[in-house]
Write a protein that binds this DNA or RNA. Structure first.
Lengths: 194, 194, 194, 194
DNA sequence: TATGAATGAGAGTTCATTCAT
DNA sequence: TATGAATGAACTCTCATTCAT
């Protein structure tokens, strides 16, 4: 936050360059030029180029979660909450769509998805809280366990948002849109009657 | 198909090498050595290294769809079908987990997800058929449109399978497992009562 | 020897650049520029920059041995031979003095002195032949075994030549010169019996 | 000498790191970490990384000479002395073998072997004294001048010790061993009868 | 079609050195 | 004296691609 926090400056520059060019094509020399620091300074804060990926992922998730919490009203039903989450996720995905994929695959290759799980933990926790409240209110009757349920809901929303913004949408008519996602999840929250 | 079909040999070699090393670290020279062809021959069949990615993606999807159709019984209910699809997807994901992520992100970057959509089209079509039958049988009552519904179901299953096999699963107890995925989708197939 | 034998061209260029700048300061990019080949071509012929060192060492030893054999007369006594070897070694050392040290230490570090031994083997063999003849003639009566004797004689000559040309010779008056080396070795060839 | 004599701490750390990694691969940052001082402190005591090499060389020679003098008996003949020197040199070479080569070549390149001569001066002087005594006793009758003789003797011993410990000695049977060195030098001390 | 030697731009990374504190 | 964050030039090496055969 301070004016010459070099760590933040490098992360910001990395996001800017990688958004424009992707991870591979973004060179460390472009990043440091953008950040206004020396080549070697990069390696004072990150062990390698790969090591910025978790920092970017953290940044995106934090932004997402902060926006969700900001938009979330205390007295909202789980249905309102789902709508809010879908709205915000689509917005954030739109903004960061170029980064999300390589963060995901970058973490998978160079770091392991454990780190992804760790980064997402506060989001999962928050969602589980919402679902538990909904269970108490009787609005969530599914037999799916809360942990997996939270993860699958978040997965559906994010994957749908990515599919929406990343495909070139010639086939927009068949694309998943926000409304469909909301209805799908609402359906999933109530039990099926076998 | 012939024993020295160089195209297939290159794709096979690419899969083997990229499975082991990832897309970036797999060099064309390693691939051609594995395939037993000359460096230049690669470029007779593919415009660039990137151009093998759709070929690999197609191979995986075809394998997946063939296995699903093989395991699918004509008289199965939609519930049976979901279970079959989940089982097969988890199996195939386990086998190809190293390739799936970079196919996805590779297609997103170098080709656009349109191609992904195109590759998945037959799978989406098949799933839509299943869901339409279920609608007629009264086993699928959700208000979600069939197109998006098929996509979201497939997304949940695949994302869950990836999460299951790619995270190092220290937290296996909270990991999404097959049963949870099946219940989640079954719930989603029936309407919620607002 | 052929006009575009790239291997020889790279070795020649390496010798020229390393003679002028030493091993560390000689960059591969300078070498390839001097050789008139592309950067990557270097790595077609050598696994690394270090890998040129044995090639240079071999070149020097071959030159030395060829010159010695050229100057050596068939009917020479061992005493004449020693003088010839000292003369030629001083000459060759003068020409290649800049290379000898880093060849020696480079081989020691990056390859092991085994390779040095291997390179020197034909020289050792030749010297042992000379000494065996001298033994038969009664001109060499020392009890030192022929193998070690050959090695020590060669070592003294080379180390003395290096000391002569490499030290800045302010102290030239105390420096070992050729005559002293010759006498020293002749002494060593005859047994001590006071 | 004091417990936090930073100069000595840096030399000690340099020896430790360079013994393990060689001169080039030993970085100043590793050395200062080992020494427990700051990066800049290094340059308070040494002008450059190269400047530690003479300090290390001096340390080794002083150790060698001290050990020789300790093992040397006042009433020893030159033959005993040679044996002692050979023994101690082999021991010290064993301990410092990794450092000796780059000290030698490092001094040659970055400083000139003059410094090596200067460092060795007290050793040469001591050896010359021994040889002069032997001359008076009639045990050394060679016509080689005392100065060069001392240097060549020391050279043979050291080179042989290096060859013994540095080559991987698969060919140990042909390697020069201590006994052969002793006999060789004893032979060299007595004149040859032309 | 098929080859594989040759290319050369450009990558990530290191590290001796400096200097404001 | 002592510090250590910052520097940035320079390094070795990789690799997708080309083209003469």
């Amino acid at each position: 936050m301070s004016i010459d926090n070099k760590y933040e400056m490098i992360v910001n520059a990395s996001i800017k360059i990688m958004k424009a060019k992707g991870f591979d094509k973004a060179s460390v020399s472009q990043i440091v030029k953008e950040a206004g620091v020396a080549q070697g300074t990069f390696y004072l804060y990150f062990d390698s180029k790969n090591a910025v990926v978790p920092a970017i992922a953290k940044r995106i998730l934090n932004t997402l979660l902060a926006e969700i919490k900001k938009a979330h009203r205390q007295d909202a039903t789980i249905y309102d909450t789902i709508e809010t989450v879908v709205d915000v996720t689509f917005e954030i995905t739109k903004e960061y769509k170029e980064l999300i994929l390589f963060c995901y695959s970058g973490l998978a290759y160079y770091h392991s998805l454990e780190i992804w799980e760790e980064i997402y933990q506060p989001y999962y926790d928050w969602m589980e809280d919402q679902l538990n409240s909904a269970k108490e209110n009787g609005l969530c009757t599914t037999k799916v366990e809360i942990g997996p349920l939270a993860r699958m809901i978040i997965n559906v929303i994010e994957t749908s948002a990515e599919a929406f913004y990343l495909s070139n949408q010639r086939s927009k008519e068949t694309a998943i849109n926000k409304d469909q996602v909301v209805i799908f999840i609402k359906s999933a929250l109530t039990d099926y009657h076998s």
